[in-house]
C-alpha cells in the first residue's frame, strides 16, 4: 500500500509536467482545430531564450516574464508568416507544415545552443515537499502554477469578451465572422497564447528533464495523450488528463512485469486508447453530434 501511494504521488508530480503541456495543446487545438506537432519544440526554444536571458544576468522572474512576452509575439509571428498562407490548404498539408517547423526549430536550437544538456534553475527550490521524498518543492510549485494557469484560462474564456470571441471563432467560424469577429486574428491569438503557455511549461519542466534541444520530445507525446484523454476541448480535462497519464505511467512501470523504461510509453498510450475506444470524445470532451 505504501508503495502504491508513493507511486501515485510520484505520478502526480510527473503528471504536472504533462498537464502543463496538455494545456498548451488544448489551447492551440481550440484555436486551429488540429494538433501542432511543433509545439514542444516551440516550448523548448522559449526555454532556451529564458536560459540565455539568465546567462546575460537577468534575474529569474524578469527572464520568465520577458520570455512569456517574446513567446506570445513569436507564436503570433509564426502563424502570420508560416501558417496563414496555408489556411486554405488541406489539413494534411498543414500537418506537414508542423513537421517542417519541428525540424527547423530543433535544428536551429542545436546550432545556437548545441546539444549538451544544461542545468536550469528553479525558483521553488528542490527540497522535499512537506517531508515527502517523492515530491520536491519544485514539483509542488509546478502543480501550483499549473492550477493557477488553469484558473486564469478559465476566467479568460468565460468572462472576457476576447475569450468569448475566441471560443466563437473556433466553434462556428462563419457565424463568428457574421457577428463581426476577425477569425483570422483569433487564430493568430490562439497561436500566441499556446506559445506562451508552452513556454511556461518548458521553463517549469527544464529543471526536471534538463535543458537540451530534444528535451520536449517525450513530454509532448504525453502532453498530447493527456489532452486527448481529457477531451481536447476542455482545459480542465487536459489538466486532469495530465495527472492521470503521469499516474498511469508510474503504476504501469511498477506493477506490470517486464515493463522497462522503454515500454512505459507504449503502455500508457495503449491504456489511453482503450479509454478512447470506450469514450471516443475523451473523459471531459463534448461529444459532437455528427449529422449528414
Amino acid at each position: 500500500m505504501e508503495l502504491f501511494t508513493n507511486q501515485v504521488l510520484a505520478g502526480i508530480a510527473t503528471g504536472a509536467i504533462y498537464a502543463c503541456m496538455a494545456l498548451a495543446v488544448v489551447m492551440i487545438y481550440q484555436a486551429i482545430d488540429h494538433l501542432n506537432f511543433a509545439q514542444g519544440e516551440m516550448a523548448m526554444f522559449s526555454t532556451f531564450i529564458s536560459w540565455q536571458l539568465m546567462q546575460w544576468g537577468i534575474p529569474y522572474w524578469a527572464a520568465f516574464v520577458l520570455t512569456l512576452a517574446l513567446s506570445f509575439v513569436g507564436g503570433i509571428a509564426i502563424e502570420r508568416i508560416l501558417f496563414k498562407p496555408l489556411a486554405k490548404a488541406p489539413i494534411l498539408t498543414n500537418v506537414a507544415g508542423f513537421i517542417a517547423l519541428f525540424a527547423i526549430i530543433n535544428s536551429s536550437a542545436g546550432l545556437i545552443w548545441d546539444f549538451t544538456i544544461k542545468q536550469y534553475p528553479t525558483p521553488f527550490g528542490s527540497a522535499p515537499f512537506l517531508g515527502s521524498q517523492l515530491i520536491s518543492t519544485h514539483q509542488a510549485g509546478m502543480i501550483g502554477v499549473t492550477v493557477l494557469l488553469l484558473l486564469g484560462l478559465y476566467f479568460f474564456f468565460q468572462y472576457t469578451k476576447i475569450g468569448l470571441a475566441m471560443r466563437a471563432a473556433a466553434s462556428v467560424p462563419e457565424s463568428a465572422r457574421l457577428v463581426g469577429i476577425n477569425t483570422s486574428w483569433m487564430i493568430a491569438l490562439g497561436w500566441g497564447m499556446a506559445s506562451a503557455i508552452g513556454s511556461i511549461a518548458g521553463m517549469l519542466i527544464a529543471p526536471v528533464v534538463f535543458l537540451e534541444p530534444n528535451m520536449m520530445g517525450g513530454v509532448l507525446i504525453y502532453g498530447f495523450a493527456a489532452a486527448v484523454l481529457g477531451g481536447l476541448t476542455s482545459p480542465f480535462g487536459a489538466v486532469v488528463g495530465g495527472f492521470l497519464v503521469g499516474v498511469f505511467e508510474n503504476l504501469a512501470g511498477t506493477y506490470i512485469p517486464g515493463v522497462g523504461n522503454e515500454l512505459k510509453l507504449p503502455i500508457a498510450l495503449a491504456l489511453i486508447i482503450s479509454v478512447l475506444v470506450v469514450k471516443p470524445a475523451g473523459l471531459f470532451g463534448r461529444h459532437i453530434v455528427k449529422r449528414v
Binding site: A165, V172, E174, V179, I181
Partner: peptide, 21 residues
Amino acid sequence: PQGRGTFTTMTVEENLQLGAI
C-alpha cells in the same frame, strides 16, 4: 444565415453577447 448559424455549444446568453461583440 440559412440554417441560423447558432453557436450550439454556448449558452443562449453567450449567443446574445456575441451578437454585440
